[in-house]
Structures are given as C-alpha cells and as structure tokens.
Computed example of a mutant assay.
Amino acid sequence: MKARNIVVFGGAHIDRRGRISGATAPGASNPGRWFEEAGGGGFNAARNLARLGHRVRMIGPRGGDAAGDMVAAAAAAAGVIDRPFVFLDRKTPSYTAILENDGNLVIALADMDLYALFTPRRLQQRATREILAVSDLVLMDANLPQETLTALVEAASGDGRLVAGIAVSPAKVVRYRECLAGLDFLFMNEAEARAITGAEAAAVEEWPSLLHAKGLRGGVVTRGGRTAVAFDRHSACIAAPPALSALADVTGAGDALASGFLAARLAGSDLAACLRHGIAAAVLTLGSPFAAAEEMSAEAIEQTLALVPAAEMLS
C-alpha cells in the first residue's frame, strides 16, 4: 500500500469514560470503573490512518495544560505529526461519557468551548496552506465551527484530493449544511443522518437519496449492529456488520470505520470494498478498550475482513 499525505482538522482532546459494573440504575449511584485517554473524532481517525501506514498531520486547537501534553504524547505514540494551535491560557477540551456494562452509551458531556476559537483565519496561515496543498485527503470533524468547516471545504477542494467529514453528534453534524456539496464523503450514524435530512425515519436503502437531495455527494450511514449503507455519486451498497459476542467499548468505532473506508478509497478500492474495510476497522476497535485500537494495521484489517459479510449493491 502506498503511503499518502493526509491532514486531519478537528477534535484532539481528553476522553473520560465511566463504565457501569452491573445493571444501570438511572437516578442513582452506580458502581463502576473510570478510564481516561486522549481522544476526539478527528484524532481517533488520525491515529488509525497513521497506523495504516499513511503520513498524517493533525491540526486543531489545544490548551496549554497537562491534558494537552497527554494528547501530544498519544500523537507521537501513534506516529501522527502533531501541529496544534496551542492556547496557553486555556484548558484542553474534554468528552466525558457514561457507558453501560455492555459498552453502550448512556449519556455524555462535551466540554468543547475551545474549538470555537479555531476560526477560518487560522486556515490562512502559510504552514496550514502548505500542508493542504500536498495532502491527498483532507478529513475534518464537526467539533469545529460551521464557518471554519465551510472555509476548510472550500480551501481543500480541487487538485483531485478527497475531502471528507466525521459527523461527531446529531447536534454538531448540522454544521456541515453549508458545505455538504463539497464533501466527497460524510460519515454519520442514523441519528446524525436524521439531523441532516429532517427525516423522522427511513429504511437503510433510502438514506442515499435523502442525503443526495441535501447536496451530499457521498457518505456512510451506520446503524449500530444493523446493516450500514455507503454511497457515492454513482452507486450505493449495503453491508451488515458481523455479530460480536462482546463489546469492549463502542467509543471510536465510527471514527475507525471512516479510517478504514478512506484508506481503502485512497488505495483505489470500489465502494463495496471500502465499506467492508471500514466495517473491519470498526470491528477491531469494538474489541479494544481504546478509542483508537493499538492493534490497528492493514494486516489486521485484511484478517478481520473474513468476518465481514459481502456487500450488496443497490440499484
């Protein structure tokens, strides 16, 4: 596989996750365990793509604190070229989640105010423009402000490079509305697809047409353990994730799917193969206690593909 130049813009912060030990008791104290690591949608994808053999630069705002140092150390460990904008008088953003015993999310709190300071003006700096110019893939997440995402899509378009986005959450995915037509792919779950389209519910086969109608050229809609759909300007396909006996943690699975999909796309794979590679990367992450699985590699994905059912093309 040829190494490609990739730049990721977006969240690189601290993930704190509490996992309930037994049955969840709402409104009560629940025994469990606490875990903390570097995370963020963009940063998870950046680490995955670096472990898949690509040259990855990560650009985003960060505080001048111990949490920011933890993120920098995690970038170095994964082989990511770290290029943060550091605000020395601010704290690094954080995401705090409570998970059920089976790994599914109960509720989460995102303290992300610092990302609002990543304005379009930051994209005009010479070093950033030079990184954009040599990148084969520009990936962003919706932690950034709407105007910054729009400016970034405009700056990244052209020269044959891929431009892609990660939804992050239903509340944040709507920040892409002004630039959907400039994205080659947007990675989202069904709740995020509903936020973009306004559709109350849809069969899996309907998402491509609903999202095309909003201007999106391509994307992937995941549905937990149910069938996922991928589409581009010319085709669409569906594939079911394999049944798993246990989940270590759902955190980062969507970011991993985006990473596996995009790595396959950069290698020239067709849409069905890209979706299966994305699902395989997500399976690796679901079996890991970390949001970016340390065992992620091209070889591990190839082995995991044996578990992923064939994709079905849609008319």
Rank of each mutant, 00 (worst) to 15 (best):
A164I: 07
R129I: 02
N104T: 10
L183P: 03
N104W: 07
D141G: 03
L144D: 07
G165S: 04
A108H: 01
A156R: 01
E178R: 15
R129S: 09
T128L: 08
R126C: 13
L180M: 05
A167P: 00
D113N: 12
A164H: 04
A164W: 05
L144P: 12
L117A: 13
I166N: 02
A181W: 07
R175Q: 06
V138D: 06
L109I: 11
D159P: 11
R126N: 14
V168G: 03
S169G: 00
V163D: 00
V134T: 15
T148A: 05
F118M: 09
A127H: 14
T128S: 09
L186A: 04
T128D: 13
L132T: 06
P145M: 09
Q124V: 07
Q124D: 15
R175I: 03
Y176A: 01
V106K: 03
P170M: 01
T119D: 13
V106S: 11
A110M: 02
L149N: 09
E154N: 13
E178P: 08
V134M: 15
L105E: 06
A116C: 09
T119A: 13
L149A: 04
D141I: 00
A155K: 08
Q124W: 09
A142V: 03
I107D: 04
R177T: 08
I107H: 01
A156D: 05
V134C: 15
P170A: 02
V163S: 04
G165Y: 00
A133L: 10
A181K: 14
N104H: 14
L114M: 08
R122K: 11
T128N: 14
D159R: 12
A133T: 09
F185A: 12
D141L: 04
V153Q: 01
C179H: 03
R177P: 03
R122T: 10
P120M: 08
S135R: 07
V163A: 04
A151S: 15
L152K: 09
G165W: 00
Q124M: 14
R129F: 01
Q124N: 12
I131K: 07
R122M: 14
L123N: 10
A116Y: 10
L117E: 14
F185M: 13
D136S: 10
L123Y: 07
G160S: 09
R122N: 12
M112D: 12
A155L: 10
A110E: 05
V134N: 10
V174M: 04
E178M: 10
M140G: 06
L183F: 05
Q146S: 15
T148E: 09
Q125V: 15
A171C: 01
D111T: 06
G158F: 07
V168C: 04
T119H: 13
P145T: 06
K172Q: 06
Q146W: 11
V173F: 01
Y176D: 02
N143Y: 02
E147G: 06
T119F: 08
L180R: 02
E154Y: 09
